[in-house]
Nucleic acid binder design. Sequence first.
RNA 1: GGAGUGGUGACCGAGCGGUUGAAGGUGCUCGCCUGGAAAGCGGGUGUACCUCUAAAAGGGUACCGAGGGUUCGAAUCCCUCCCACUCCGCCA
Length: 435
Amino acid sequence: MYHVKKIDSPIMLEINYIEENKAHVIKRLEKRNLHDAADKIEQILAINQQRKETQLALDTASSQVNQITKQIEQLLETKNKEKLESLKAQSRALKTGIKELESQLNRYKDVLQHLLYELPNLPHEKVPIGKDATENQIVYQVENIPLYTKDKLPHWELVAKFDIIDFDLGNKLTGAGFPVYKGKGARLQRALINFFLDEAIKAGYEEIQPPILVNKDSAYGTGQLPDKEGQMYELVNEPLYLIPTAEVPVTNLYRGQILSEDKLPIRHVAYTPCFRREAGSWGSHVRGLNRLHQFDKVEIVQITLPEISYQTLEGMRSYVESLVQKLELPYRVVALCGGDLGFTSAFTYDIEVFSVGQNRWLEVSSISNFETYQANRMQLRYKNSGGFKHLLHTLNGSAIALPRIMAALLELNFVEGKIKIPTILRNYTGFDYIS
RNA sequence: GGAGUGGUGACCGAGCGGUUGAAGGUGCUCGCCUGGAAAGCGGGUGUACCUCUAAAAGGGUACCGAGGGUUCGAAUCCCUCCCACUCCGCCA
């Protein structure tokens, strides 16, 4: 059986913060519309109190045993057998109580760990108030959104017309949500991947090719577990998960590390396929490439000092914007409101491109600052010049997820019966049109 | 799949029942030396939890892959599991 490593420290760090900032924590959690936030926090603190009391009782008893052991050591040479035996008996008697206390303590720790693992990150103060996606705040939008006209086709019609992506073949091989890219469709996708990777490398990100299967420790580290249990594909004969995003393996590269300041910031880019079960989220609005079980994504990850992480977030945002600009796609940037914010994130920007064939915005990138949330779970820290250890901040962003970019790109550039490839991609595709 | 070796601190590496939170080294750090550096010399340098503090200092407990057992006492002995490496086989 696979055993998730129990980590004492992050739990306790976090619990102390909660204890000292109870009102603040509850208020922030309520921003997520977590209505029972106060109850949850009270419950956590109550169990923590019991944990402390048990710890104290256990330490006291253990200390007594240690005292007796020392006395025995001294007595070994004098041959006072009776005294020796009575001390041994005393120690044995204490032992049963110790065992009881130990198992009690472990129970409290387990419960506490579960409760804390199920607590989402605290939203940053700038996160807009709101209950769902409709209340996200648009922070930027291009001025001229292309007009939807009847000659604009949704991408699922275009890809069928030009025979570049085949959903039926995917159904045959695997099932819904696993499309087959063919010919110029495959080449366009590969061109985009290479373009995104090259751009990231130019921007100073180091490329990584991680495993696309990860173990439980990794999935807990970045917070996919326990929150997204059931959303990941899990192997039946090994306790491994197919990654839902490169964020998982790439961030976990640094799990358990104490980095020196001169190594920071860490900047990585990785291209990987991503796998998501998307259980219960299918409907007519997710036709074609809009939602898939397997898709390709280029992901950027940064690990930075806490004091600059929001600057870093802005940098990542403008980097992703530069990509959609170079692809000449109309886009907007939204700040996710409390109700729409992901479980692990403290602040998230979504980049959405306009789909002229569907007359709607499509999310192509999500750029988040997790602050210390993931670092805390992963025990990812740095040592400053004074020798003090602090948790780092982790961030990541899609740069960019392929399917919807592909969809928007095909739809926008379908003019006069053929699809024009954006100038910047032509060196990568080796062709200028799909016709 | 078969056979074997091994998992110790930021890192390398000793220890194989009591004075070991853990030798030695590297790294880091402070001081001396120097015009400055290198070398050299001397000192310091694990983590977490509990307790005590306004805070620090202090006190206690636990931790040598994980879990359990033996013992007054376990890094050291026993059991189970996990992981890594090596050789053979098979295979991209």
